[in-house]
Design a protein around this nucleic acid. Structure first.
Lengths: 143, 143
DNA sequence: GTGGGGGTTCCCATCATGGGAAGGTCAAGG
DNA sequence: CCTTGACCTTCCCATGATGGGAACCCCCAC
């Protein structure tokens, strides 16, 4: 099977298949003309990578997960630790994004949103203060 | 004021100050020796940029917000639209991250996490199926 | 005049992915 | 047999925002 078909069956782009190979995640056989050849085990690896990426694992974690997957003597504790560390990272990022969304939604709620120029959103960006917030004392934290 | 002091007062790195200049967000005067010179208006711009970045706006939005901020005849509706579009983007990203976290947490909850090798997390990465989920019909969607 | 702490430009790296050029290969069909 | 088109190969470049670092210049205090 050529790279195009393999990529299609695994649900990733041929470009990324080459990339995964270049970082050492799989090692397809080559024909004499240089073409890469894939069979079921390689497809399985590519699908594994895709699923891990869909769960947001960075490539470095994917590499470790692949190694654990291949190691029949792995301890599931290791996999679980990797997963839970990643869950913590995901939740931290999600919380940060939601905090931004909440602040900005609050600001937007105070903005007329009409033809007039005054706008608490721009005010906040200028001053770093939310609408109605007390001015910082003059020697505050450098903002 | 030199770039180091300006960066410190605005709460950004000197490196980023130069970068913001390179993409046209500010245009500090230069001394004969090539040094950049900053005064209060530039500091205000840098703080504005920092606050917008802290709310997660991409630089392209920051550029637009800066233009609106400088335009005393702006319509606050434009600012509000930018802000609410960004809120939607933030919430979409946050939701995606949380969905990943939820799936992964669910998988991890089913993993013994001990010295044994069997692990529903690896199983899901291999098959794309959550624990207990029915096998897909043989001609399913290519996964 | 020298040392140290700035400043300047330029290049490279991140992370995962895509775009595209230049060229080789293969299969089908006229 | 030759063309055409689809596919493959490698290599370079770009993203977005940021940091690291080299090589070099400048200024002030001692």
């Amino acid at each position: 099977m050529n790279i195009g078909e393999a990529a299609g069956r695994a649900g990733v782009s041929a470009k990324m298949v080459r990339h995964y190979e270049s970082i050492g995640l799989l090692h397809p056989r080559r024909l004499e003309n240089g073409y890469r050849v894939y069979a079921e085990p390689e497809i399985a690896v590519l699908r594994f990578i895709r699923h891990a990426r869909e769960l947001g694992f960075p490539m470095e974690d994917v590499r470790r997960l692949l190694a654990l997957w291949r190691d029949r003597r792995r301890a599931s504790a290791e996999v679980k630790r990797l997963a839970l560390d990643h869950v913590a990272a995901l939740e931290e990022k999600a919380a940060a994004l939601q905090a931004m969304a909440r602040s900005l939604r609050h600001l937007a709620a105070h903005c007329h949103g009409d033809g007039r120029p005054d706008c608490p959103i721009l005010d906040e960006l200028e001053t770093g203060r939310m609408p109605g917030e007390a001015p910082a004392p003059p020697d505050c934290c450098g903002t």
